[in-house]
Design a protein around this nucleic acid. Structure first.
Lengths: 153, 153
DNA sequence: TGCAAATATATGTATCTACATTTAATGTAC
DNA sequence: GTACATTAAATGTAGATACATATATTTGCA
């Protein structure tokens, strides 16, 4: 099995936390590579795919661009322009909100849902990737640990 | 404490592995934001900083551009151009390798080392971020779990 | 009401990334 | 040695990100 030290050819780390930080960054990048690979030849970028998934998660309810931002992992990426691209391809609809005309509501279209179903067959789920290596108890514990890490005083 | 579900406003996940995958991605992005913030106003990008750190880790030994790539977390980023930027600012030196003239050896300069020492004061270490929340035993266990995740059959 | 501050989104821009292609040097088979 | 494949790095490019700014709408309050 390849440890993080072997992956990035680094024999020593200043301490176990340094090693863990790099391990988290590396593992996230590794997931990203996998997903990008899966989406390749399907003419859709990873952020576009993620936005479509968030929209599907809304189950028909519209969501504002700001709401989309909150739900996106990469906060600084530009939701407005990602939605632009999706709208051009008629995968989503944009509609000015009546209650607050500054706000723009976004919903996924039939076409978007269909594409997403197709892509889901290509993109491995996290369960597929991890469940053979990690019990669900371990996964729970990991979730808790990561939540803790981000909530330091 | 804010759990991953609260962070991205997602009440339900299809399973605990899905939650964990997103948690890893989110935590990595959270680290990135922190570091980017720390480097802001210091006129150096995060990838540039990371390359400088790799070079320092070489302790004077030169490393090829390909070697740099292997050690970089984000494999697809363009080492050659990052080195360009660093060379322009005289933070690193580039030198064609005698043994294999296709290869280019890169070393950090005094100026680069000095800048890095300065930046290290600004950028929080992973130990600072995590040690109050996580015992070193827990960190060890997490490291092991992440290594396992990436080594599925 | 009228007007400044706040909010939601869009846009401008420089830089960075992803990926294909190019250039140059080396290795290998014949 | 020549020809072809392989390797190392650089470059061209389209598109994405980071960050500042602009535009439109709403809110709050004198």
């Amino acid at each position: 099995m390849k440890s993080i030290g072997e992956e990035i050819q680094q024999a020593e780390f200043s301490d176990v936390y340094q090693k863990l930080g790099i391990n988290i960054l590396f593992t996230a990048a590794w997931f990203g590579e996998r997903n990008r690979l899966a989406l390749k030849d399907h003419d859709i970028s990873l952020p576009q795919y993620n936005v479509l998934r968030i929209l599907r998660g809304q189950k028909g309810k519209a969501i504002s661009v700001a709401g989309l931002c909150e739900r996106m992992i990469d906060k600084s990426s530009n939701a407005s322009r990602i939605v632009d691209k999706l709208e051009t391809r008629k995968l989503v609809l944009r509609r000015v909100c009546d209650k607050d005309r500054r706000q723009v509501d976004v919903v996924i279209t039939e076409k978007g849902t269909a594409l997403l179903e197709d892509l889901d067959k290509k993109v491995p789920t996290f369960k597929t990737i991890m469940s053979s290596q990690l019990s669900s108890q371990d996964a729970d514990a990991l979730n808790f640990a990561l939540d803790q890490i981000r909530n330091q005083k």
